[in-house]
Each structure stands twice: as structure tokens, then as C-alpha cells.
Design a protein around this nucleic acid. Structure first.
Lengths: 144, 144
DNA sequence: CTACAACCTCAAGCATGGTTGAGGTCAAGG
DNA sequence: CCTTGACCTCAACCATGCTTGAGGTTGTAG
């Protein structure tokens, strides 16, 4: 179990490509130091970080949002259980919200199947985030 | 109730910008003909089409997928109730699948809160679509 | 010593979904 | 007649999330 990993080793173990690791580093999501020969070296914490990035992306977060979340982690140590709990709880809330939005959209779709109105004024599917939406009943049924 | 609409009128009524209408036309999602003075003219069916595009986007479909779906609509008439039912049913299935994926992800997140393992081999969150995933128990718990 | 794999930087490219701007035309009102 | 607003085309640009390629260096095995 080595304590230093090359970029290729990190790529293989984390399942992302070398170019993606370069990219994440340029974007400030991960860090490395350099060997004598100017090659990147990573601590084992990078594996956890990449894992977190991948999970967070699946929740629908942008890389910049993930970077901000990761910035709250201790910079030079493997993220602890508590760190992970804090992040995953906030991301679960985001996920819940996304699921709720999609569910409302689906229910709206169900309600409108066969109706086909899509009336700008009346249909809740249309009016979800319509710029013309009045505060009438159902206007807030669906959100973006 | 006019039967011909200018691009500005369509923009105002549909809630998308003129440039977006140009863009959709270039991508083959909507059609127009031209006036004597080379200005775009739209039939009223374009309003329904734009409405459908907007709803479909919220289900997570790409414009090209939406274009393909719209291609099954009668080109020069307002989409009928049956047309709309056919589309909305298939989109609802897609939505259901997306909701299910996100729900599994959230449940995995819940299950892993406090665990923080993210083990490449063991954690279901990690292994969802892991290239190294073995067909062990839970390996298919989460999908992309 | 030489070859080859793995690494480096930096720039450009791709796909998606649009927006912005330059430069020009068209149609209606004063 | 002249201005004004709405329209036209085409190219370039924006952000996101990467990949690809050129041209050069490093490190290890034979």
C-alpha cells in the first residue's frame, strides 16, 4: 500500500481518465504535488475525493458546486466519516428536491395525458414556470 | 385570432426568445414559411410544438431526442390529443425511470451516510456503474 | 545505450443549448 | 421623406465537462 500515487495509478483505481484528473486539478477539485521529475503525485485521499465527485455529479451538482463543497473538507487528509456525512446529507436534500420536482412533472404529465391542452393560461404543465403565470390555483403545482 | 404569426408574436406567446426560435428552426424542431418580405411566418401549431418542447426538456430529453419525437407528429397541423397522449406516455416512462434512478441514488446516499466508506469494491454507491464492479450483491442497486 | 511507456504543457476541439452582435432589409407612422 | 422597430443572415461567443493532439521530458527494462 503505497502512500504516493502517480496520475496513472489514480486513474486506474478511481476509474476516471488521466485527462479528467488533470482537468479536475485545473478546476481546483483535487490537488497534487510534484516529483523530482515534475510528475504529479497524489495522496490516497484523492481516491476518496474522486469518489465523492462522482457521486455528487450523479446527484446533479455542477463541478463548481462540488468544488465549493470539497473546499469545506480538510485539504490534506482523507475525508472523515463526519465530513462525508455532512456532505451527503446536504446532497440528499438536493436530490430529494430534484426527485420531488420530477415527480410533480410526471404527475402533471399523467394528469394531462389525453387532455393535450397545454393552454398557456390554464394547463399546470405549461404554467409551472411560465412568465405569464398568475398566482391562481395550481400555478405552483410544478416548478422548474 | 390570426392564423399567421410573426416570430416576435410566437416569442411573446410561447415565452421563448426570438433567437431560440431561430435556433429551434435550425435544429429542425419547428418550421416556418416566409412572407413576401422574407420574414418568418408560423402557423398556430408552432405554439403547441414549443409548449411540447419545453415540457419534454424538463423531463430531461435532449433537443435531438425531442426533434425525433416531434418528427412523428403530423408536420402541418396542430398536434392532436392522440399525438400528445402518445408522446406524453413515452416521456412519462422516461421520467419514471429517471425518478427511480435518482431515488435509488438517494437511498444509497442515506444508507452510506455515516459510513463514508465509498470502497471501490464494496460500497453500492461507488459500484453503481463502476468499471470494476463484480456481479456481487448490490452491484446493480444503483444505475447511472 | 536505447527503446518505449508514462508523464508533462498548452491549445484546440467536441457536444449541448443557446445568446450576442454586426451589418443590412422591410414596413408603418409622422 | 425619414425614422423607428421588427425582422433578416451569419459568425462568434458563453458555459459545462471533458477529450485529443502536438511536441517535448522522464523513468525503467532489456
Amino acid at each position: 500500500m503505497q502512500s504516493e500515487l502517480s496520475v496513472g495509478q489514480v486513474a486506474e483505481r478511481s476509474g476516471v481518465s488521466v485527462s479528467t484528473l488533470h482537468f479536475y486539478e485545473a478546476k481546483g477539485l483535487i490537488r497534487s504535488w510534484r516529483s523530482d521529475g515534475n510528475q504529479r503525485r497524489y495522496g490516497r485521499d484523492v481516491l476518496r475525493r474522486v469518489a465523492i465527485i462522482k457521486v455528487a455529479q450523479r446527484t446533479g451538482l455542477s463541478l463548481s458546486a462540488i468544488r465549493d463543497a470539497l473546499a469545506t473538507l480538510p485539504p490534506d487528509r482523507v475525508a472523515s466519516t463526519d465530513d462525508w456525512r455532512r456532505l451527503s446529507e446536504s446532497w440528499r436534500d438536493e436530490l430529494d428536491a430534484r426527485i420531488a420536482r420530477l415527480t410533480r412533472l410526471r404527475d402533471g404529465l399523467d394528469g394531462c395525458i389525453g387532455c393535450g391542452c397545454l393552454s398557456l393560461k390554464l394547463c399546470p404543465l405549461r404554467n409551472a414556470d411560465d412568465h405569464l403565470a398568475q398566482q391562481g390555483p395550481g400555478a405552483a403545482m410544478l416548478e422548474r
